[in-house]
């Protein structure tokens, strides 16, 4: 068959368009089909992300004994949203924030492969940031308290214990207050 547009090339592209139920058919050569430019905003042209994932996932790091991300979390299911790891591998999207925790063995290895990194060093939510700081402070004071107990400085340890309680209350109310 000869191209309907240029009447020269071989019509090896068969284009069927259905617009509002109205069907139009074209038989075009590759050049005309491309030039037609009718494929702008065509909905099925999105990047096949799952394929991208599986490509990345199948690469075994040279010399590594690390498990493939696909295997590391095989059979897992998120208890919060119900997404299975197999589904995630297909759609390339996670279901909720808990997925990150539940799928962590395979997912973290995938993230490391995607970003070459697995530690966030950017912006931190201001409020979460302050409670993070408090948490770290509590940790530090706890180890200091243990030290005082070991040194039999019980008075100092008790003082620290009260301070820790106070801080923990702050973290707690800070955290809860956000839920509202």
């Amino acid at each position: 068959m000869i191209c309907q547009k240029c009447a020269k090339g071989n019509a090896n592209v068969h284009l069927t368009k259905i617009v509002n139920g109205e069907k139009t058919e074209y038989f075009l050569c590759e050049v005309c089909a491309r030039a037609q430019g009718d494929f702008e905003l065509s909905f099925d042209e999105e990047f096949p992300l799952h394929q991208f994932f599986s490509d990345i996932l199948e690469i075994i790091p040279p010399g590594g004994t690390e498990k493939l991300p696909r295997e590391a979390s095989e059979g897992l299911q998120c208890t919060s949203c119900g997404l299975t790891y197999a589904q995630f591998m297909q759609i390339g999207r996670l279901g909720c924030d808990s997925c990150y925790r539940i799928f962590s063995p395979g997912l973290h290895s995938l993230i490391r492969r995607l970003h070459g990194n697995q530690k966030h060093i950017g912006k931190v939510p201001a409020r979460a940031g302050s409670s993070l700081k408090l948490k770290k402070e509590v940790e530090r004071m706890r180890s200091e308290m243990q030290k005082k107990i070991y040194e039999e400085d019980f008075e100092g340890a008790a003082k620290l214990r009260d301070e820790i309680r106070q801080l923990e209350d702050q973290v707690f109310t800070g955290g809860e207050g956000l839920e509202e």
Binding site: D97, I111, H120, V124
Partner: peptide
């Protein structure tokens, strides 16, 4: 949705 290690959690990793 934020975690200390991975930062802001998004639908797509």
């Amino acid at each position: 949705a934020f975690c200390e290690e991975l930062g802001y959690l998004t639908a797509c990793p």
